[in-house]
Write a protein that binds this DNA or RNA. Structure first.
Length: 124
DNA sequence: GATATGACGCAAA
DNA sequence: GTTTGCGCCATAT
C-alpha cells in the first residue's frame, strides 16, 4: 500500500462534523511530519469517496485557494462545523484519532522530546 | 541521481 | 495581529 492509500484510509475514517489537520492525518497514517504529502494526496484524490473537505490547516484555517476553499467551507458547514472569524472552532470540531488509549484522558503524559526549552530545531 | 514542487507546521521577528 | 524563514517529505520531471 502506498502513501496515497494510507492517507485515504485515514481521511475516510473522519466522521462527519469533525475535521483534522494535515499534520494530524499524516501522523495518524504513520507519516509524521509529512503534512504536505497529505495535501498532495488529497489533491490527487479529488473525491473517490474521500471527505477531503474535512482536512484543514493547523488551527482550523482553510488552505484551499480559490473557489475550492468556499466549497470546502460550505460542505463543512453543512456537516455542522461552525466557523468563527474565518477559522474553524477546532476546540469543538477537531477529531481525535484513536491512537493510544490513556485512561486518564491525557495522552502520553511526560513523553520525551516535549522539552519546553528546545524549540525542536536549532535556529541560527 | 538531482532538482523542483506543494491544500503544511511552527517559531521567530 | 501579520509576515518571514526554514524544515519536512513523498511525487514529478
Amino acid at each position: 500500500m502506498g502513501y496515497f492509500e494510507d492517507i485515504r484510509a485515514v481521511v475516510r475514517g473522519l466522521p462527519p462534523g469533525k475535521v483534522a489537520t494535515y499534520g494530524e492525518v499524516a501522523r495518524a497514517a504513520g507519516y509524521p511530519g509529512s503534512g504536505r504529502q497529505v495535501a498532495w494526496a488529497l489533491r490527487h484524490a479529488s473525491a473517490r469517496g474521500i471527505p477531503w473537505q474535512r482536512i484543514v490547516g493547523a488551527g482550523g484555517t482553510t488552505r484551499l485557494p480559490g473557489e475550492s476553499g468556499m466549497e470546502q467551507r460550505l460542505l463543512l458547514e453543512m456537516e455542522g462545523v461552525k466557523f468563527a472569524g474565518g477559522r474553524i472552532r477546532m476546540k469543538q470540531f477537531e477529531y481525535r484519532f484513536p491512537k493510544t488509549r490513556a485512561k486518564g484522558g491525557r495522552r502520553a503524559p511526560g513523553r520525551p522530546g516535549s522539552a519546553h526549552t528546545v524549540t525542536g530545531r536549532l535556529r541560527s
